[in-house]
């Protein structure tokens, strides 16, 4: 049991804890948005812990340093893509009309969207008379 094995195992244990936590958050939270909050963050940090932990553990277990760069690539890739996937999903959920939890306090997005719609309606009304004139001619 070398030092590298111990550090690696500690990191893997840390990551596994957050993995279990993310699935618990997925079950316990009341609506899609809060589930996404808890699940995505914990799963990303858990992946960092587990994957880099395996890279360090391999030094003691397999005796090879070539695992570290490859595990780093996988970890950095997950760190960059997980938030993008979460962002795409939460916007899709909002656009497809999933309601917020009834305990939510404020929804600025809806206000902004409705004001934008009003601006477009007014623009259309302004354009209509001129269009009518063109048709008459």
């Amino acid at each position: 049991m070398s030092i590298a094995s111990i550090i690696g195992q500690a990191l893997v244990l840390f990551g596994t804890f957050f993995y279990v936590l993310s699935s618990l958050g997925l079950i316990r939270m009341p609506d899609v948005y809060n589930r996404m909050q808890t699940a995505t963050k914990s799963a990303t940090l858990g992946s960092l812990g587990v994957i880099i932990g395996v890279g360090i553990w391999a030094i003691g277990e397999v005796g090879s340093y070539s695992w570290i760069p490859k595990t780093l690539i996988v970890a950095v890739f997950l760190l960059l893509t997980n938030p993008i996937a979460a962002h795409a999903l939460i916007r899709a959920a909002y656009k497809s009309g999933v309601p917020l939890w009834e305990g939510s306090i404020v929804d600025r997005y809806k206000e902004a969207e409705s004001s934008l719609e009003r601006v477009e309606e007014i623009k259309e009304k302004l354009e209509e008379p001129s269009r009518g004139v063109e048709i008459n001619e």
């Binding site: 618990l24 609506d31 809060n34 963050k41 940090l45 305990g103 306090i105 929804d107 600025r108």
Partner: peptide, 26 residues
């Protein structure tokens, strides 16, 4: 910041009363 965020999330998930107060801000 990420580790702090996750400890915060852990507190919210494991707390029996689920202390959340969500909303969308700008």
């Amino acid at each position: 910041a990420m580790i702090m965020a996750n400890l915060d999330v852990a507190y919210r998930v494991l707390h029996p009363k689920r202390p959340i107060n969500p909303g969308i801000v700008e």
